[in-house]
């Protein structure tokens, strides 16, 4: 049971505030169950993040999280969650890339904490981040070039996938 006072309206207000504060940047507003969502193309993304960070009325100073998604036909997406301690509002930013070759600009210069989050997103789904200072694998082995969170990646032990071990009988590999 939630007792929050109409969070949806507050989050839409935040999105509208961003619209008025950053009128030059094109983005689409939608809502999720918690925060409002801004959908922005990769080429405008750095501009938007810079505005979100620098603008005094917005001042999103905390990067909470980066989610990388494999959306199948629609390409690879990244979702960023920002929060502002001063104003107490949060926002989700969605950056879709239409094809696998497209890159998203790295925001490690603006948010140092993005470093590991971007490395994780890059190895797990295969997103490419432009100008990332340290683009190695983080959680997986360094020389492993697989993207386990892609939808086509089977749920199986790595040894079996690499052919080192035999899989259980009757399981398609």
């Amino acid at each position: 049971m939630t007792t929050e006072t109409s969070p949806a309206s507050k989050n839409t207000e935040t999105a509208e505030l961003i619209r008025t504060q950053l009128p030059d940047i094109p983005f689409e507003i939608s809502v999720t169950k918690t925060y409002a969502d801004l959908r922005v193309e990769p080429e405008n993304f750095l501009l938007l993040v810079d505005g979100l960070h620098k603008n005094d009325a917005l001042s999103f100073d905390l990067l909470r999280n980066i989610v990388a998604l494999d959306m199948g036909e629609e390409g690879l997406w990244a979702k960023y969650h920002f929060y502002s301690f001063i104003h107490g509002h949060g926002i989700q930013v969605t950056v879709p890339t239409k094809s696998i070759d497209l890159t998203i600009p790295s925001i490690t210069n603006i948010y140092p904490t993005a470093n590991w989050h971007e490395r994780e997103a890059a190895e797990m789904v295969g997103l490419k981040f432009q100008n990332h200072p340290d683009p190695r694998n983080l959680l997986l082995e360094e020389d492993l070039d697989i993207h386990p969170l892609r939808k086509e990646h089977p749920l199986q032990k790595p040894e079996i996938l690499q052919g080192i071990e035999e899989g259980p009988p009757g399981v398609e590999q």
Partner: peptide
């Protein structure tokens, strides 16, 4: 639908994103 739900974990913000 999708959501990002932050909670106060023991070490800090323990957030769950579900789509």
């Amino acid at each position: 639908g999708e959501l990002y739900l932050p909670t106060e974990g023991t070490k800090g913000e323990y957030g769950v994103y579900l789509m």
